[in-house]
Design a protein around this nucleic acid. Structure first.
Lengths: 219, 219
DNA sequence: GAAATTCTGTTGAATTTTCAACAAAACGGA
DNA sequence: TCCGTTTTGTTGAAAATTCAACAGAATTTC
């Protein structure tokens, strides 16, 4: 477990918890680590909302697939980030999304009820974890507002430019990398992949941007 | 303040707080009540994220308007529900949405920092409020997942049917009222109003649904 | 109760997206 | 390095959306 401490220290869930307590806490929480290969399902749609997950290495996608087979990427989860906490905290019966490993990944799973309910050992860290969860959930909410700002645009061009604008702002530079390939970006923006490729080409011709693979530059 | 107690008891933020403590608590939190007429701005975009709000009477819309003037309705806030808590809890500099009164409404505003930080009076209720906020934020996250499930559909018809299906499920009946007029529904589904009207007419002709104003029946 | 305002449904044209199919490029494994 | 697989870009046709304009219905205001 100790080999993950450098990652866990960066995880917002453990803000304000000092290293000495972390190991004890993980034991008390019954945290377990599982490895997933690329494309493997970490959390399956319609399963029970028991666990929240932390990405120790690799990355994962939170996706939704409707009955026509159309895929939406709801969010990307990178190393040291947490996922599925909303379902576990809200105590839903059936999870409406899937979480899929994006590459070979090590995932820590924690039974959320162990965090939310005081344990018999009377550990003192529950309050801190609940406060951290509250912060994390508030920030996830903000991510959704951002995503809606993007996907509420009516054209592929507008969605793309809104997305790229936000990424540039985040990177603090007109040159930046995005964490998506074309199909994934299309599934995030809720548009057709081929139309997206065409739009990127057009914007390049118009001199609005440069791009090479997943590197973009706004001009 | 006491006249609002029946509403406040229904507000999730005060779950587990007993009536005797509620009044004291509201004073300690510096809660204030303000009335807003229809269409008045309760929280303005780009303002500082200081307050969270509770609807004591009436209702409000959380909206986003882009530089083309296109309006999105992100969510509807009904009596006894809470809004803007994510921005206050996450401590953002500038709020990316506006909250607009949908009818004459009484709104309670609470400075979120008074909830998140223990006060000098050393009140014992902060932990409970933070736990409640965590629950509320988790549930708001679920609402977003639902909204994305709806708006990720590519056609007006699919968006509408997905939305109506969820409403029917929620109502536990094929007959139900929706809280939107046509324009508002279009702004929630992210589609064109006239196209939405046309689609509803077509579905009625096809025998898929009945509707009269904001009452719908799925057949 | 009349007038003014708001809301809803309809229509056709212009724009845009989706879909399917294919070829070129990039990537990964043996 | 070669081969098979995956990813990306292109294209044209079909389908759907948006936009603008208008008329009738419903609602509000005075």
């Amino acid at each position: 477990m100790k080999k993950y401490f450098n990652i866990l220290r960066k995880c917002q869930l453990f803000d304000g918890i000092d290293d000495n307590d972390l190991f004890k806490m993980l034991t008390c929480l019954g945290a377990k680590v599982i490895e997933f290969d690329k494309k493997y399902t970490i959390i399956a749609e319609q399963s029970k909302a028991t666990y929240l997950g932390i990405v120790l290495s690799g990355s994962a996608d939170v996706v939704q697939i409707d009955y026509y087979g159309n895929r939406s990427i709801l969010s990307k989860v990178l190393t040291s980030e947490i996922f599925a906490e909303a379902f576990a905290c809200a105590g839903v019966q059936s999870i409406p999304i899937s979480v899929i490993a994006n590459e070979p990944s090590e995932i820590m799973l924690i039974d959320a009820s162990h965090i939310l309910h005081t344990c018999s050992n009377n550990c003192g860290f529950h309050q801190q974890l609940i406060f951290n969860l509250m912060k994390i959930l508030a920030n996830k909410n903000l991510e959704f507002y951002e995503r809606i700002e993007i996907t509420s645009k009516r054209t592929t061009r507008e969605k793309l430019l809104t997305y790229l604008g936000l990424q540039a702002k985040r990177a603090g530079s007109n040159q930046f990398y995005i964490p998506f390939n074309r199909q994934d970006l299309a599934d995030y923006l809720e548009v057709d992949r081929s139309g997206l490729s065409a739009e990127i080409s057009k914007l390049r011709q118009e001199g609005v941007l440069n791009s090479r693979k997943n590197q973009f530059e706004l001009l």
